[in-house]
Design a protein around this nucleic acid. Structure first.
Lengths: 143, 143
DNA sequence: GTAAAATCAGATAATAATATCTGATTTAAT
DNA sequence: ATTAAATCAGATATTATTATCTGATTTTAC
């Protein structure tokens, strides 16, 4: 198999995009988020809990409770969510699995891959969640 | 966790690079390859077997047996090994895990990610194993 | 204050990836 | 022929990821 982000991370990204695309001051239950995104509800519930612990999401307990973004969508980047869930190892580890891959002892594709990695990092860093509102809504409506 | 290629694939790539960097007409045992690359020998043995089944590697059974590349290093690309082990899903599946991500129903990062994916694909496609001989040897000597 | 609906915490289950083991078969050298 | 050294095939073990379950706690509404 081949993975970029773990399922946890994918679902976390989807959930945050969902929250960013919806009303700022409303909370959404994990059940509702799961239903909208068509992903397992207990699983996304766990993920939202951990993102709450990380401070990216805030939660309201009890009846009429749910989840919302902890900050403005303009202040959250995709990389924040990735960092909170999967960590940033992907941007450090060797793509061929060699240990200690660096410019001193580079693997055969170290430099070329480095460029790509940098671009991927930039992609996840330069734009904030608010930019994705429209496409997120369209995408979800077509699920 | 975050992964690009599976361990299987990483080790497969390493092993093929190792074979490409060494003498064309000699065979190398899985034990030797494992020792040189400092990776688990039974595991790499399995991987080499499956690459033999795929036709990328050829094997010689019995005493003094071992593995060698089935073709010239100039005729093998990294993508061939990736395709044989992990498959090419990574170049098709949505990075955010959305189903049916396409230009019709794109996810929020569909286009930007598409570019990166294309470049990664090119990187794995445009160069053949022989190009990596030197860096492979240096890297292995520093393990 | 009671009930309903939610998060939360921790345990458990199911599945997939990684790694190892056992024995059979093949081949070369003596 | 016998032995040693290798691939090969299939089973097993280990670990990590993904998913679900159970019950406790929190909060709102009546």
């Amino acid at each position: 198999m081949t993975i970029i982000f773990s399922k946890k991370c994918e679902y976390g990204l989807q959930a945050c995009l969902y929250l960013a695309a919806n009303k700022k001051d409303e909370v959404y239950t994990s059940d509702e988020i799961a239903k909208q995104l068509k992903i397992p509800k207990e699983f996304v519930s766990k993920i939202l809990q951990s993102l709450t612990a990380s401070g990216l999401i805030s939660s309201k307990k009890g009846k009429n409770g749910g989840f919302s973004l902890a900050k403005d969508p303009q202040k959250i980047k995709l990389i924040d969510i990735v960092a909170a869930i999967d960590g940033l190892d992907i941007f450090e580890n060797c793509v061929l699995g060699f240990p200690n891959c660096s410019s001193d002892t580079p693997c055969p594709v170290h430099n070329k891959w480095g460029e790509l990695r940098t671009k991927a990092y930039q992609m996840l860093t330069e734009e904030t969640l608010d930019v994705f509102k429209e496409t997120t809504l369209t995408k979800i409506n077509n699920l």
